[in-house]
Design a protein around this nucleic acid. Structure first.
Lengths: 145, 145
DNA sequence: TATTGTTATACTCTATAACTATA
DNA sequence: TATAGTTATAGAGTATAACAATA
């Protein structure tokens, strides 16, 4: 490949696509008073087993020191609670409140609508292939060990 | 979709994939003293017709005020030149120097190697489909009008 | 000794507004 | 008037180091 154009660089295209998709998602989330980051945090909290802040940090790839402020903000808004883990009292279990669960459900619907809009140019099969490719690329690389 | 897991959110997966790919690309670029941003700028400059700073900003989605500093840095390193456009003396044509062209060629090779590494989990056909999907998603959305 | 959460700090990237020179 | 580039500035996001409480 002698002098490839930027437009052919799959790395650049991947980036651009991610940036444009985030933009559409944030437009849909803004009426809820959310940006994508706290939305991802809420979605990450909604697991069968409660996670500590550090586990959440690793899962989402957000620095633990940044996570402190994000959880602070969500706690101030009444969407999550910090509950001391009884077996390891250094940890907090981060839990969704009732309001948090309701907000997350609304947010999920908004994001699903954004994704429908963004992926409209693909057929159902193409979109399935795309999502499958992402799964293969992330396998073994994420979530982190 | 009642309570989707984060792992199934195509928006989140797209983001994670882009972030991990950038990471691999930056590992390969760091021996050249480059991060992905100035690399993208160099690659954007390497067009048949020279671009102004603002045209570059629009192409790459980088704020014009941020572009000033990026071009400053590349100019200081001797990789690009600012040349006044003769027909519109408000504009600069941003041009690659000889050294810039050599650095860009080396960087392209490094990034191509990073992409090979990152996309190894996909077959050739899967990768072609993936790239094709990105093309469809970006069509009409990027480059900007 | 090591780990969880926290604070302080600095650095980068981004966004806004105002300026200059040109159109 | 409007546009290209610049500067100053403030706001996010991220990373590093150090600390208290706990393991």
């Amino acid at each position: 490949m002698e002098r490839p154009q930027l437009t052919e660089r799959v790395g650049f295209l991947t980036n651009k696509t991610a940036a444009l998709l985030i933009q559409v998602v944030e437009e849909r989330l803004s009426p809820l008073g959310l940006t994508s980051r706290p939305y991802f945090v809420l979605a990450g909290i909604d697991q069968p087993e409660p996670l500590s802040q550090q586990a959440l940090s690793r899962l989402l790839g957000i620095d633990p020191t940044t996570m402190v402020g994000l959880i602070d903000e969500l706690e101030r808004s009444g969407l999550v609670r910090r509950v001391r883990n009884t077996r390891d009292r250094r940890r907090y279990d981060i839990e969704l409140s009732e309001a948090g669960a309701r907000t997350l459900a609304t947010a999920h619907a908004a994001v699903a609508a954004a994704e429908e809009e963004f992926f409209a140019p693909l057929t159902g099969a193409q979109r399935a292939d795309y999502q499958d490719a992402l799964g293969r690329l992330l396998d073994g690389r994420w979530p982190p060990p």
